[in-house]
C-alpha cells in the first residue's frame, strides 16, 4: 500500500509537472496545490488521463484562512498583571455586524478545496487553489468538467463570496432571499447580521439588526503545546 502511494505521487508529478505548486502527503491523503491559471487544465488531466481517472468530484468548498493559528488565550507566559484571561481576540464570536473587523490585503486568505475520487482506481486526491485577490476572490469554475460541482460552487459563492468564472448559474443557495454578506467568512459575526420577527402592527415579517443575542465566547481558542505531537512531527520530518 505504501509503495503504491509513492509511485502514485511520482506519477502525479510526471503527469502534472510544473502545474503542481506543492504536494503534501499526510494521514494517507495527498493534497496538491495549483495556481488559478492552471486549475482548468489540471482538472481536465486529472479526469481524463488513463492513469488518474478522477471521475467523481466528491466535494468542493471554500476556506477562509483569516486568523489561522491565532489564539485568544496565552498559556505560556504570565505578565506583571498575572495570567492571560482569555478574553481578548478577534474571533467571529466576539463582535457584531457593526463592529466587525475589516481586514485588508491578507495574503492567501481564500482557498477553494476540491476533493476528487477515482472510482476506477479507488483513489482520492485533494486539490487546493488560493484566490489571488482577497478583496474580490475569483476562481475558475470546474462545472464543465464535473457538472456535479454546480451547487458546491454556488455554496462557496454564497458562504465565502468566491466568484466562479464560467459558472452557468451563480446564485446564492443556502442563505435567505436578499441576504447581505458572506456568513462563513471569519470576519462575519457568529450571531449574524439580521434577525427576523413578525410585526403585528405592520402585519408582516420584518428584518432588523440583531438585538436578542450578545456576542460572546464561552471557551476561548487556545493552542496547547503538546510534546507528543512535536515528537511525531520531528519523526515525520526526519
Amino acid at each position: 500500500m505504501v509503495e503504491q502511494a509513492i509511485t502514485f505521487t511520482e506519477r502525479l508529478h510526471a503527469r502534472l509537472a510544473h502545474r503542481i505548486v506543492s504536494l503534501v502527503e499526510a494521514h494517507g491523503e495527498i493534497t496538491i496545490e495549483v495556481l488559478p491559471e492552471h486549475l482548468l487544465e489540471t482538472a481536465r488531466l486529472l479526469r481524463d488521463d488513463a492513469d488518474l481517472r478522477f471521475t467523481v468530484a466528491v466535494d468542493l468548498c471554500g476556506v477562509d484562512y483569516l486568523g489561522f493559528g491565532q489564539v485568544e488565550w496565552d498559556t505560556e507566559d504570565a505578565s506583571a498583571e498575572g495570567f492571560s484571561r482569555g478574553v481578548e481576540g478577534q474571533g467571529p464570536g466576539r463582535f457584531d455586524w457593526d463592529g466587525r473587523p475589516r481586514p485588508r490585503h491578507v495574503e492567501r486568505r481564500f482557498a477553494v478545496v476540491t476533493h476528487l475520487l477515482s472510482v476506477p482506481h479507488n483513489r482520492r486526491l485533494r486539490l487546493r487553489m488560493f484566490c489571488p485577490d482577497d478583496g474580490l476572490p475569483v476562481a475558475p469554475s470546474l462545472t464543465e468538467i464535473w457538472p456535479g460541482l454546480n451547487w458546491f460552487e454556488r455554496e462557496a459563492f454564497d458562504l465565502f463570496g468566491i466568484v466562479f468564472e464560467g459558472h452557468p448559474d451563480l446564485r446564492r443557495i443556502l442563505t435567505d432571499y436578499g441576504f447581505v454578506g458572506h456568513p462563513f467568512r471569519k470576519d462575519f459575526p457568529l450571531i449574524g447580521n439580521v434577525e427576523v420577527r413578525y410585526d403585528a402592527d405592520k402585519g408582516r415579517v420584518i428584518y432588523e439588526p440583531v438585538t436578542s443575542v450578545e456576542p460572546r465566547v464561552l471557551v476561548p481558542r487556545v493552542i496547547r503545546d503538546d510534546s507528543r505531537y512535536r515528537q511525531a512531527r520531528a519523526e515525520q520530518g526526519s
Binding site: V58, D59, C61, V63, D64, F68, G69, V71, V113, H115, G148, N150, W151, F152, E155, V219, R221, V222, I223, R224
Partner: peptide, 22 residues
C-alpha cells in the same frame, strides 16, 4: 482543518443529498 487549537478551524460536511438533489 485544524490549526492546533481546541476548536476546529474549518469543518466542511459533505452531504450526499446535496450532490444528488443538484
Amino acid at each position: 482543518i485544524s490549526d492546533g487549537a481546541n476548536k476546529p478551524f474549518r469543518l466542511k460536511l459533505r452531504a450526499p443529498g446535496f450532490a444528488h438533489l443538484s
